[in-house]
Design a protein around this nucleic acid. Structure first.
Lengths: 226, 226
DNA sequence: CTCTCTTTTCAGATTTCTTTAAGGAATCTA
DNA sequence: TAGATTCCTTAAAGAAATCTGAAAAGAGAG
């Protein structure tokens, strides 16, 4: 799987590039619209990620020109926050999806997987694993040895967040942001309820993972002993 | 299976279109090179059938431009007479096969089947199999042991899509794209209704397959246990 | 045109997920 | 240890997605 990233903010580009490579994608990165067009037209990419605000040629122009010649490669747009108009315009021009900055890494990866899946392409690294317990990112099944159980969407997001931060403390604020969204107004008790659900399901499949609570701080996912 | 036919002789186009539909292919038809290009580049077709003599943009140009962006979709050329030069030129440009007019219907169908088979889109004997349940791709019959039942075209496309993605989740968006077409504006409920039809038919033949719903995501086809 | 089969639409029933609420347990503080 | 705080768990209300039967609309054959 080869991905083209066109993004002029070096920091962000670097970070995303690193993230994608860690997920076993091959990534090329451009920092302006002109070179983006050049690379984009080669047709060798499985997904294109385009920022809207770009030097030399903005994301819309880029998108338009690429779509003149290539209607199929999935394109993901990155827009600044709250620019709904941009979103609509971009989708009209032929983008397949969009993501507003700032975005979470999970969100980005999920969108990429969705685009690839829609194309019927094989996914790379489609599961998270920890101590023998596996979370299938496309079916949302949690599995340990031969037992598995289906997670709901909230349970799934919670679990994947914990697994991404294995052995680290994850605060309830962070969990709320990942599971309910950036500006959600949700009681802490909701997190507690879902943690409870997850613990039950982990137990059900006899997983060796434990969600430990760190009073006043949050939770950490770890093995049975620690 | 979706086929694009680009042919300006209305009579012939009509006839071929009718023939293919009778064979349960989904067929779209264009009458000139420009719209042919537009449709051809969508990438949703399993086979492209291009006439050489076309208004606005002839078959060779069309072929060339399509092959710039899509090297895999099988292309069958229709040439006027026994123009060996045309044949060679066409194959050089990336066509997969050619047929000289006039041709027999059987001949056309055989070429199409051959192209599809070469792509691995059809199994050797024209059927998809899973856990003892088989879907006959040419008669559209669903069979388990000695019981069988006829599927309609929509039911069939749905079923084959699920069988192609066995044990994976298939979203309603994807099903709509595959069954109703890429730009179809179809309510989710339609998918639900047809899933319901299929479940009834699977039950009728006592198949061991089950269509499991993954709430908020889509469906997956699996064995009885789940 | 009529009949039949397919497809779509609609609406109520059903299932599953989410949130709220409350009592009890655990942990901390003074 | 008493009292305060935080967390756990369960039950039940509320919301949303899905299922499904039936009717309406459409398409094709004769």
């Amino acid at each position: 799987m080869r991905i083209l990233l066109v993004e002029d903010e070096r920091h962000l580009a670097e970070a995303v590039c690193h993230l994608l490579k860690a997920k076993k994608y091959m990534v090329d990165c451009c920092y302006d619209g002109e070179s983006g067009l050049e690379y984009g037209l080669t047709g060798i990419y499985d997904v294109l990620i385009l920022d809207i605000m770009l030097p030399k040629k903005n994301g819309f122009e880029l998108l338009k020109e690429i779509r003149l010649h290539d209607r199929t490669t999935p394109i993901l747009l990155l827009t600044a926050k709250d620019q709904v108009a941009d979103k609509v315009y971009g989708l009209d021009l032929g983008a397949d999806d969009y993501l507003t900055k700032p975005f979470s890494t999970d969100e980005l990866l999920a969108r990429i997987r969705a685009l690839l899946r829609r194309q019927g392409k094989l996914l790379v690294d489609d599961r998270l694993e920890m101590n023998g317990t596996t979370l299938n990112l496309s079916t949302h099944e949690l599995m340990y040895q031969d037992k598995k159980i289906q997670l709901g969407i909230k349970e799934f997001n919670l679990m994947s967040c914990l697994m991404h931060h294995k052995n680290q403390i994850v605060t309830k604020e962070i969990l709320i942001e990942k599971v309910w969204g950036y500006d959600a107004d949700v009681d802490y008790n909701n997190v507690e309820v879902y943690i409870s659900f997850l613990r039950k399901k982990l137990q059900f499949i006899h997983s060796s993972l434990r969600i430990k609570t760190v009073r006043g701080m949050g939770y950490t996912l770890g093995g049975a002993e620690g």
